[in-house]
């Protein structure tokens, strides 16, 4: 389960960044990957669609959202939690 969440999230982020999946590592930041605010919002949409979840994210206060976007690993953690809560 966990691996599949991780793989799917990485695949979505890689597609957004127009990179190979193998180039997206857990410690990459969105900035490293060249994903800007619009790209982030688009990625979150794709993640919500893929897992049928609601991600609590407001672009005006990213640091106050319950959704930590500081790295790929933190995004995966957050999505895993949301997917687990839904199950």
């Amino acid at each position: 389960m966990s691996d599949s969440v991780k793989d799917k999230v990485i695949a979505i982020i890689a597609e957004q960044a127009v990179m190979d999946v193998s180039d997206v590592t857990p410690d990459s930041t969105l900035e490293d990957l060249g994903i800007d605010s619009l790209g982030l919002v688009e990625s979150i949409f794709a993640i919500e669609e893929a897992f049928d979840i609601q991600v609590p994210f407001n672009a005006n206060e990213p640091e106050q959202s319950d959704f930590d976007i500081s790295s790929v690993a933190s995004i995966i953690d957050a999505i895993e939690k949301l997917v687990a809560e839904k199950a």
């Binding site: 919002v41 979150i44 949409f45 994210f57 407001n58 672009a59 005006n60 206060e61 106050q64």
Partner: peptide
């Protein structure tokens, strides 16, 4: 909503705690 720039509670321009 899709753009994630909307506030759920109030419009607080120029305030540090503004949220959309």
């Amino acid at each position: 909503e899709g753009l994630r720039v909307m506030s759920k509670d109030a419009c607080r321009p120029f305030s540090a705690n503004r949220n959309g």
